[in-house]
Nucleic acid binder design. Structure first.
Length: 478
RNA sequence: GCGGGUGUAGCUUAGUGGUAAAGCUCCAGCCUUCCAAGCUGGCUAUGCGGGUUCGAUUCCCGCCACCCGCUCCA
């Protein structure tokens, strides 16, 4: 996929992200480290804004459920390193310590040293590998989890793992939350945090990295209601992605086939996005899984702690089923960046109309010039507004601009810039997606009005200083 | 993990077995009454390590990173 000047879209986007302080290669001065990324001053602001929007939707301002009442979801922040038995119970350790052989044909996985004891899933009468369609890989070790050692002694007893997903921390605390929060099934527990996977092939910028951030919610419900909540979660999640300003045509659902379901899952649907590097195909963005009672059962068996829930009203004791929407926060950052990035041609004359999307293969026509702009929704923009004195060598303009800047930054991340020509300052803000430019000129000193410049249309209007807060506030609330 | 390609400043590109050049960006100053203007000055680069050589950014080897295919992807 081409962008401009022969560069691919992703090259142009990652160059902007570096140039403007969104995303840097981790330990860049040492040559980097494959699969790790640092988020710069604007990147962390953007990431936090997405995270906060998810948290608001998931925890503090949940949607109404089928009965019209808001669904109940509480937050959690569990440890990255848990008792290693956690990962034995969850199934993450199994198969990691021994070389494994996969069958490409039937997706089955066998221990290499015991392969003659397995039956081929397709042909119960035959051993693995004996069927004509069997397509076995070489034995390989899968060490998807990062290992570390707890305490001073490094041995098998002290070995622990960096969590490969945040979900298990939620299951471990199911009883704690039920016992302390007066929640009733159905309810959910949401968590945002780092997860680590020693991926074979990190690829495609921040799409698949070895350290990443997840936003997961485990919804606990009665088994009879699980299918209904699965459908509900599916709709809610798609609505959230659209609410980030992602174009409808760039999103779709994809149901998992029976043979690609993970070991814990009864059903799974992916929200997929049309990534520039997968186009014309879509790529995974979020998974919504029906996990049945797999996890609570496993932890109940391995820990000996009862995970059953007792419904007082119905006098029912049962092991809840779990619906899990699991998405990558860092992947959401990538999607928002891809959606926002535009190269446009803007008319050089005042009455030339609105900016138009640039032809990736062409030069700007006569009367137009090129600009790069990040069209973030105001609620996601790292910086909400920039304040400029029209001229920096006029102390009265500078003083007034700084006064406005200082009052606005009480409420939002706001930028102040007095360097260079005013047009140059607007364009700088376009590149980081600041929705509003506020310029203090000589009229300001007379009537307390400023020009408010819109990032997308590049149009300006005169507004009272006193109105700025409500204008920006309304836009940011969306 | 396999194969191919690429590594010179923040970006885009020069160039050389012997002092690394330019434009844009960025910073400072001057100027400037609304969309990357002008003038002056400034910071900043041969991915890392070894070898050959009097001398390596240039030639050779290894590594690292990135890109493109495949592979993989709880």
């Amino acid at each position: 996929m081409k962008a401009t000047n022969g560069k691919t879209f992703m090259e142009a986007l990652s160059a902007l992200c570096k140039r403007r302080g969104f995303i840097f290669q981790a330990s860049e001065i040492y040559g980097g480290l494959n699969g790790f990324w640092d988020y710069g001053p604007l990147g962390i602001q953007l990431k936090n804004n997405i995270r906060d929007d998810w948290w608001r939707r998931m925890v503090t301002c949940t949607p109404a459920g089928p009965d019209g009442e808001p669904v109940q979801i509480v937050g959690l922040d569990s440890a990255i390193i848990q008792n290693p038995k956690t990962w034995q119970a969850s199934g993450h350790v199994a198969g990691f310590n021994d070389p494994m052989v996969d069958c490409r044909a039937c997706k089955a996985r066998f221990r290499a040293d015991q392969i003659d004891q397995y039956e081929c899933p397709r042909k119960p009468s035959k051993k693995a590998g004996e069927h004509t369609e069997c397509d076995l890989t070489e034995p390989r070790s899968f060490n998807l989890m990062f290992e570390t050692y707890v305490g001073a002694i490094k041995n098998d007893e002290s070995r622990a793992y960096l969590r490969p997903e945040t979900a298990q921390g939620i299951f471990l605390n199911f009883r704690n939350v039920v016992d302390t929060m007066r929640v009733k099934v159905p309810f959910g527990i949401a968590q945002v945090g780092k997860a680590f996977r020693n991926e074979v092939t990190p690829r495609n910028y921040i799409f698949r990295s070895r350290e990443f951030e997840q936003m997961e919610m485990e919804w606990f419900c009665h088994p009879d209601e699980a299918d209904q909540w699965f459908r509900f979660g599916k709709e809610q999640r798609m609505a959230w992605w659209r609410g980030l300003g992602v174009r409808e045509a760039s999103l779709r659902f994809r149901d998992h086939e029976q043979d690609e379901l993970a070991h814990y899952s009864n059903a799974c649907v992916d929200v997929e996005y049309l990534y520039p590097f997968t186009a014309p195909d879509f790529g995974e963005l979020e998974g919504i899984a029906h996990r049945g009672c797999f996890d609570l059962t496993q932890h109940q068996e391995h820990s000996g702690t009862k995970m059953e829930y007792f419904d007082q009203e119905k006098n029912l004791r049962f092991l809840p089923n779990v619906i899990e929407p699991a998405s990558g926060l860092t992947r959401a950052v990538l999607v928002v960046l891809c959606e926002a990035y535009r190269v446009e041609w803007v008319p050089t004359s005042d009455d030339g109309g609105d900016p138009v999307e640039a032809d990736p293969n062409g030069k700007a026509p006569e009367g137009y010039e090129e600009r790069t702009v990040m069209r973030f929704l105001p609620k996601l923009a790292p910086v909400k507004a920039a304040v400029f004195p029209l001229l920096k060598n006029k102390p009265e303009l500078v003083a007034k601009a700084q006064e406005i800047y200082n009052s606005l930054r009480e409420h939002w991340p706001v930028f102040y810039d007095q360097t260079g020509a005013i047009g140059r300052r607007y364009r700088r803000q376009d590149e980081i997606g600041t929705p509003f430019g506020i310029t203090v000129d000589f009229d300001t000193l007379a009537d307390d009005t400023v020009t408010l410049r819109d990032r997308d249309t590049m149009k300006q209007q005169r507004v009272k200083i006193a109105e700025l807060s409500s204008i920006i506030g309304n836009a940011v609330r969306g």
